[in-house]
Design a protein around this nucleic acid. Sequence first.
DNA 1: AATGAATGAGTCTTCATTCAT
DNA 2: GATGAATGAAGACTCATTCAT
Lengths: 222, 222, 222, 222
Amino acid sequence: MLTSTPAVAPPAEPARKRRKEARPQELLDAALEVFVERGFAASKMEDVASRAGVSKGTVYLYFPSKEELLKAVIRHNLSLTIAQGGDLAAQFPGPTDELLRVLAMSWWERVGETQASGIFKLIITEVRNFPEFAQFYAAEVIEPGRQLLKALLQRGIDRGEFRPVPLEDTAYALIFPMLMLCLHKHSVGACSGDIATQDPRAFILNHIDLMLHGLCRTGTSP
Amino acid sequence: MLTSTPAVAPPAEPARKRRKEARPQELLDAALEVFVERGFAASKMEDVASRAGVSKGTVYLYFPSKEELLKAVIRHNLSLTIAQGGDLAAQFPGPTDELLRVLAMSWWERVGETQASGIFKLIITEVRNFPEFAQFYAAEVIEPGRQLLKALLQRGIDRGEFRPVPLEDTAYALIFPMLMLCLHKHSVGACSGDIATQDPRAFILNHIDLMLHGLCRTGTSP
Amino acid sequence: MLTSTPAVAPPAEPARKRRKEARPQELLDAALEVFVERGFAASKMEDVASRAGVSKGTVYLYFPSKEELLKAVIRHNLSLTIAQGGDLAAQFPGPTDELLRVLAMSWWERVGETQASGIFKLIITEVRNFPEFAQFYAAEVIEPGRQLLKALLQRGIDRGEFRPVPLEDTAYALIFPMLMLCLHKHSVGACSGDIATQDPRAFILNHIDLMLHGLCRTGTSP
Amino acid sequence: MLTSTPAVAPPAEPARKRRKEARPQELLDAALEVFVERGFAASKMEDVASRAGVSKGTVYLYFPSKEELLKAVIRHNLSLTIAQGGDLAAQFPGPTDELLRVLAMSWWERVGETQASGIFKLIITEVRNFPEFAQFYAAEVIEPGRQLLKALLQRGIDRGEFRPVPLEDTAYALIFPMLMLCLHKHSVGACSGDIATQDPRAFILNHIDLMLHGLCRTGTSP
DNA sequence: AATGAATGAGTCTTCATTCAT
DNA sequence: GATGAATGAAGACTCATTCAT
C-alpha cells in the first residue's frame, strides 16, 4: 500500500518495483517450503500465496499453473544445486581423503543446511507423476554428481590412496547417507526432533571416516 | 470364479466368503501400490478400488476413509517389517562381518525386493501430514532397527573384530544407503531404469565391504 | 435361525411362517418410526431393516423401493386413521358438547397416543415431494374429517346448543391444536420433554372447554 | 448489472462489493426456501446456490457446510421471529380482546405471510436431528412467546375481562392453530391450493372469536 | 425366504483457475 | 500489478438397490 516514500528516502527503488523483481524468487521459496511440507498434491496455491505474502491471484501473474510452479521450483532448485555442485570442482592439492571431507562439508553447508535440502524429498515424491523430471534430474544432478564422485575416487586410486573399488556403487554409497539426511530432515526429523542424528556434521564426518577406514580393525583386514 | 471343485475337494468355503476374508489384504496391497506410485493425496480411492478389482464403494466396506486406509497400509506393512526384523534377531555363531552380510541380504530379500519397499517413500512423504505416524514409526521401526544395529556393532567391537566407532551414527550410516535404494526404486528408478544401481545386491555387498574395510589401502590408514 | 422346534411344541404355526405374515406390518411400523425420527430423505433403509430386526435385503422382499415403502407407510397409517375415524361416526344421543369431548378423547387415545401420531409429521414433511399424497390425503383424511366436524357443529347449531359459526374455519380451529400436539410430540417434545403440555388430555379438555365457552366472562359477551 | 449511475448518484459502492455484503442474506433466503420445500436432507447445495443465483462453490465461501447453513438459516429466522415478537410487546391501552386481535394480525402479517413462516416446518422436521436447536428454540422462541401470551391472558383476567383459565394450556391453544396455518401453507397448502383456509386472516379472526366467546350460546353455558 | 457383500449413481466439498474491480 | 469473489471440475463418501449364496 505504501508505494511512495517521502523525499528523503534512500536511493532505493520504489518498494513496489523491488517487490516485483523479488516476487518470483519469493514465490519459488514459498512453494518449495509448502510442497515439501505437505506434498505437491496436498498443497494449496493459496498456502503458497499466503506464505509468500501475496494473494491467490498474484501467483498466477508469475506462474501459469500449479504444475508449472512445481516445475519452476524443481528447475530452480536443481540449477542451484548444480551451480553449487560446480563450485565444488576441485583443484584441491592435498590428499584425497581430505578433499572428500571438504567437499562433503561444503555440500552440507550449501545444500543440507538450506532450504534446498527439501528438493530431494520433492523429487523422490513427484518424479513418477512428472516423468520428464527423471531425465532432467538424471542429466542435471545425478550424472554430474556421479562424475564428480567417480573422478574423486579415481584420483584416490590413481594416487595409491584408495583401494581399487567399484566406482559406480561406491559413489552411491558415499552420497546416499547424505541424501537420506536431507530426506530425514524434512520428514521424520521434522516431527520428533530427537530422532536420528542430533549433529549432522558429526554424522557426515563419521560416515566419511567409515568409508575411508572401515569398521574392521586395521590388522584384521586381509 | 472357481465356485465348484471336484468331489474330493477340501471343505471349500463359498467363493464369496473366501473373497471377503481376502479383501482387506487385497485392498492394502492395491493401496500400497497406488499410494507409492502417485502419492497419497493424488491417489484416488477409485484407483485403489479398481486395482484391487472392486468398485469404489467396496473399499469403504473395509476401511472407513482414505486416511484410515493409509494408516492401515502403513501399520500393516510396518508390522511386516518389524516382524521380519525380529526374525533377524540372531543367534548367529560366526564372525560379525559375516552376520552383517547375512542380515543385509535377508532384509533386502524380504523388504527391498518386495512391495514393502514402497512403504519408506510413503512415510517420507506423509509423515508430516500424519504426525501420529512419526511416533508410531519411531517406536515400531526406527527404535527396534537402531537397537538391532547397535547390538550388532557392539558385538563386533566386543569380539575385537570392529574398531570402537560411534554406535548411533554408524548404525544410520549402515542402513541409510539401503533405505535410499528403496526410495530410489520407487522414484527415479521407476522412471529411467538405467539410473543408479543395476544390481542392488552387488551394491549392498559393496556397501558392506566398504563399511567393513574402508576405501583406504590397509597400510595407508594411520 | 431356530425354525423348527421339537415335537412337544404348541400347536402354533412354525415361527418362520408367523414371522413371514407379520413382516410387512413390522416393517411398516419400523419405517414409520425411523422416517418420523430422521425424516424420509435422511432415513436409511438399513436403519428401517435393523429396527425391524431383519437384514437390509429383506425389506426389498416386501417393498420394491424406499419410495414405495414411504407410500405404503402413509397409505397404511392413513387407512388406519380413517378407519378409526369411521368408528367415531356417532349415533350419540346426548348433548353435542359431550359428544365433542368424547370424540376428541377417543381420537387422542387411538391416534395421538399411538405410533400413528407420527404420520402427520411425515405428511407435513413429505407431501411436497410426493404431491400425489396431497390429493390422497385430502380425499382420505382431510375431507372425511372435515365432514365429520362440520356435521358435528351443524348438529350443535341445529339443536340450539351452538352459535351459528362459520363451519369450515371452526372445524379447523377445533382440530389444529390436536394436530399440533402430535407434531410437537415428535419434534420439540421428543428433545426436551418438559416443553409444552405435560398432560395432553388435560390440554385437549381445556381446548374444548375454550372452544365451547370462550375466554370471556359470560355476561361480557355481546 | 447497474454499475454506472448518473452523475448525482449516491456514493454507489462497486457492484461486487454490494453483492458480497448481500450474499449471506440472499443465500439464507434461498436456503430457507429450498429446505422448506424439499426438506433439509433432500435439498442439494446446488439447488440452494442456483436459487440464489450463484454457483455451487460460492455457498461455501459464506457457510462452511450444509449443516452450518441450516443452523444459520434457523438462527437467522429465529432472531427475526423473536425481534418481531418483541415488537408485539404492547403498551396497548384498550380492552384485551382487541389487543389479542391486533397481536394476532400483526404476527400473521410479519411471520405468516412472509418466508419466515417456513421456519416452523423446518424446526418440526429437523429438531430431532439437531437437538441443539431444541434448547435454542425453546429458549429463544417458545419461552418468550409463552410469557407474552400468559401475560396477555393474565391482563384479561386481572381486568375482569376473561374467565380464570389455565394460563399455560390456553396460551398453547391460542397459538397452535396459527402455527398449523404456517405448516399447512408449506405442506398440503402448497400442493392443492384449495384445501384448508382460503382466507387465513378470516380464519385467524374466527379462531380468536371462538377463543373469546366460545361455541355455546351465551345463555346456554352453565 | 433371508442374508449381506458388492455396486455405482448421486452429493457434499475442495481448490485450481479466472476475471472484474 | 494486485486482489479476492466467483466458478465448476474433480474426488471422497453414502446409500438405495441387486444378487449370489
